[in-house]
């Protein structure tokens, strides 16, 4: 159990955004989090990463209360990639990816060739080699997303927390990113919009109204009935004749 929560809750001005989440994440697994907008996925990820302090319950990372750990230690284990992290600074892609080394470098410790190598690897893995000198402001949405992911990879984390990493990506990069994440020897928790992508995760958690309403293997959790109940759409499952993969198809509620 690399990451575990107990009765985890977070509320703001008396309104519960996340409540009663008991979740145990296994080392090496890829966990997909799905749920409609405002169901608490992003907040849960921030709680898991120790970015937000829970108002109820606790998160334990490798058996230690995450709130009691130094931020830097946590960041050496967990990389958290939020949605829509933007900047107005005139930074380059290289600058942005180098930030991933921050948890590993002391205040006055100089940059090392090892850091250079890790950054180069991260750029290559996200297909961003050659973009190093590009200004952030000149990047497309998808390029920014991949640069963010490269930064997270440069952290060399054991756990990746990704909030909708495939947003803005074209279909080729969507697939390659997900494939990359699942091929890395890391534990990953990924908030996803696309239920078909969730189907390829090891386990899927379903969020609704701030609660974790289901958790399990995709084929067990993602039933037609549950999708209808949680997302308010009619769904049917079809099987791809090419490789036998199951796929969701959606219809308007009425």
């Amino acid at each position: 159990m690399i990451l575990r929560t107990k009765d985890l809750g977070w509320s703001v001005r008396g309104k519960a955004i996340v409540s009663g989440v008991d979740l145990a994440i296994n080392e090496g697994e890829t966990l997909g989090l799905i749920g409609p907008n405002g169901s608490g996925k992003s907040t849960l990820l921030k709680l898991l990463g120790g970015i937000r302090q829970p108002t109820r319950g606790a998160v334990s990372l490798q058996g230690r209360d995450i709130a009691s750990m130094p931020r830097r230690k946590v960041a050496q284990i967990i990389a958290f990639l939020e949605q829509q992290a933007e900047t107005t600074e005139a930074i380059t892609v290289r600058d942005a990816v180098e930030l991933g080394r921050t948890p590993w470098l002391g205040p006055l410790q100089p940059w090392s060739p090892e850091d250079d190598r890790i950054v180069a690897d991260a750029l290559r893995d996200t297909d961003m080699t050659g973009f190093e000198k590009r200004q952030w402001a000149t990047l497309s949405g998808g390029e920014r997303q991949r640069a963010h992911l490269a930064r997270s990879l440069a952290q060399r984390p054991e756990i990746l927390l990704l909030d909708e990493p495939t947003n803005h990506l074209d279909i080729q990069h969507q697939l390659s990113i997900l494939q990359l994440v699942s091929s890395l020897p890391v534990t990953a928790v990924i908030a996803l919009h696309d239920l078909n992508q969730a189907l390829s995760c090891d386990r899927v958690g379903v969020m609704a109204g701030g609660r974790l309403v289901a958790l399990g293997k995709p084929e067990d959790v993602l039933s037609v009935e549950r999708v209808t109940a949680v997302f308010g759409v009619r769904a049917s499952i079809i099987t791809d004749p090419a490789d036998g993969t199951r796929l969701f198809r959606f219809h308007s509620p009425s």
């Binding site: 958290f80 930030l99 991933g100 921050t102």
Partner: peptide, 16 residues
């Protein structure tokens, strides 16, 4: 430097 993408990302990069 780590504040470039906001306080939450700074926290994610290990900044108290």
């Amino acid at each position: 430097d780590a504040f470039a993408f906001g306080a939450d990302q700074a926290a994610a990069l290990g900044i108290p």
